[in-house]
């Protein structure tokens, strides 16, 4: 197990380095410097600015100093907002993004799994068809459509929730719902099919044959085994919640990292784009690692294969 974690950590660092490198050179491939704008700067001023941010150095020197910054967790200054560092930008947006994201993950698990169980237990009867219909709708409709349409209906027309901002708890309802809608549906479908597959297993027949109560059969034997695929996809869920938050935070005007990212794109604030991308990637990989470790803990079969490998 410790060896496995070490291996994974090494792999993660390698990936992170690849991401930093790729991002750095991609952003430097953009034609024009960061200070090129409609208002022509005097050449002296531009040279001074370039010197201040180290842009007059050869590219590999810039790359090394950026890498050094990453290692010391310093993502550098913003080119559009003088005096603001990317670290502060992220730190400012983090609480909002984290809160909505966490609520969305909770919603995915708390709604998706029970819906899947209900559907599987009532296979081909109306609860199943209803859940599957809703799940099909939820998987097909893009999150920004869910966000805008629910915003129109529930905030503008009915006035049940505020149209923007997070001043009270009702402000969270629509963003969290739009963010998690796809994954609630996905998890419901996954839980259902996985549970149905588990029901076919011999050990389920055994459990029933030895006279266990239906609840015990479902929770101790059925659910425990069929939730494993659900847990594996939680990593990608987090990834997609992050990218989903770009649009959702913009639509609901939430001051999170996603909105900051979209704003940086519009402003062509290259260091901010770079920094936030790297931050996202790192956060994501840590999440996936945690989920994978959790997975190994929950499923003894995984641990065995890893130990023998």
């Amino acid at each position: 197990m410790p060896l496995y974690i070490l291996q994974r950590l090494g792999m993660m660092l390698l990936t992170l380095w690849a991401i930093v490198t790729l991002t750095f050179f991609l952003m430097h491939a953009v034609p024009g410097g960061p200070f090129v704008s409609e208002r022509m700067l005097a050449p002296e001023i531009e040279a001074a600015l370039n010197a201040k941010y180290g842009l007059d150095q050869p590219i590999w020197v810039q790359y090394l100093s950026y890498l050094r910054g990453i290692v010391t967790l310093d993502l550098g200054p913003s080119f559009k907002y003088p005096g603001v560092s990317i670290n502060t930008m992220i730190a400012d947006g983090l609480p909002v993004t984290l809160r909505t994201g966490l609520l969305a993950v909770i919603a995915v698990v708390a709604l998706g799994v029970p819906l899947g169980i209900v559907a599987a237990l009532n296979r081909n009867r109306w609860p199943d068809t209803t859940v599957m219909l809703i799940a099909t709708i939820g998987v097909a409709i893009p999150s920004y459509v869910i966000a805008t349409v629910t915003l129109y209906i529930f905030a503008l027309r009915l006035g049940w929730v505020p149209t923007f901002g997070l001043d009270d708890w009702r402000g969270y309802i629509l963003p969290v719902f739009a963010l998690s809608g796809f994954w609630i549906s996905f998890v419901a479908r996954l839980t259902r099919s996985s549970l149905l597959e588990t029901f076919e297993q011999d050990y389920m027949t055994t459990a029933r044959a030895k006279g266990l109560r239906p609840g015990q059969v479902l929770f101790k034997h059925g659910l425990r085994n069929s939730l494993i695929p659900v847990i594996t996809i939680l990593g990608p869920v987090v990834a997609n919640l992050i990218t989903g938050s770009f649009v959702i935070e913009q639509i609901f005007a939430l001051p999170g990292i996603g909105r900051q990212f979209v704003l940086s794109i519009t402003n062509r604030d290259y260091t901010a784009i770079m920094g936030i991308t790297i931050f996202y990637a790192a956060a994501l990989m840590v999440m996936i690692l945690i989920v994978d470790l959790l997975y190994a803990v929950l499923d003894p079969r995984i641990k065995l294969t890893e130990a023998s490998a």
Partner: peptide, 19 residues
Amino acid sequence: VEIIATIPLTLYVVLLMVV
């Protein structure tokens, strides 16, 4: 492929579009 798969691909589409 494993390395590429861990990178959030939407982010990369965004970066490529910026470039």
